[in-house]
Amino acid sequence: MSSMLNLSAQQKEHGDFADRIFEECGVDVRRCYQCGKCSAGCSVHICKGMGVSPNRIMRMVQLGMEDEVLRTRSIWACVLCSTCTARCPRDIDIPRVMDTLRIMAKKRGITEGFNNASVFHEIFMNSIIKYGRVYEAGLLVALKLKQSGTMFDDLPIGIPAIINVAFRLPKLPPRMKNSNQIRKVVENCKKIEGES
């Protein structure tokens, strides 16, 4: 018995997922013809940080594999650097799609791969609200403390990195002149989010 997937039937039956992505972010994922240039240039994928490559994510969206896509670690591992978009011959804004997939996953309560991203986001935003910009050393310590049991996981790469950049990082948290304006922007964003 063959376990081959009928791509045309799958796309016809579940094509509304690509339509919903288009409605949410204005990116037509169906334009992707799987050349793989996005994945070949993705530093996160190359370093094995993604379970599913960017071009495969696009294909899964085309095929309407909504549940599978929203459960991949890849949508959270994407750093939104836009290298994929710069390389794409079809000008598909893959980071915008990834961000839309994150929002969809969060709304549906799908948390696989999200917990660490959520912790990072919370600490990152708290640093910006408090200091007006990111305090890198504080971010690192707070992240490691929140992710219990991972304090020494990155030691082999962490020590050389610290030695290499320690003199460049600020020793004390920075203070920006207009950090209160940043606080107001964040408060307004929270209000808007609460209204929607």
Rank of each mutant, 00 (worst) to 15 (best):
I128G: 00
A137D: 03
E122R: 13
S127D: 05
F114V: 11
V119P: 01
Y131M: 05
L145S: 07
L145E: 07
K146Y: 04
V134T: 09
K130E: 12
G113V: 10
V119E: 05
E136F: 08
V119L: 12
F114A: 15
S118K: 15
A137R: 11
F120C: 08
G149Q: 09
K146E: 14
E122A: 12
L145V: 15
K130L: 04
L143H: 06
K130G: 02
V134K: 02
G113K: 10
F124T: 05
N115L: 14
G138Q: 02
V134F: 03
E122M: 08
Q147K: 11
A137C: 02
S148E: 14
E136S: 06
M125L: 11
I123D: 01
F120Q: 06
A142C: 06
F114D: 11
I123S: 05
S127T: 07
Y131E: 04
G113R: 09
Y135E: 00
R133T: 13
H121C: 11
A137H: 00
I128S: 00
Y135F: 15
E122C: 05
L140S: 08
N116A: 14
G138D: 01
A117V: 03
I123T: 07
S127F: 07
I129K: 04
I129F: 03
F124M: 10
A137G: 06
Q147E: 12
G113P: 08
V134I: 14
F114R: 14
I123E: 04
N126V: 00
K144Q: 11
L145M: 13
K144V: 01
M125H: 01
H121V: 08
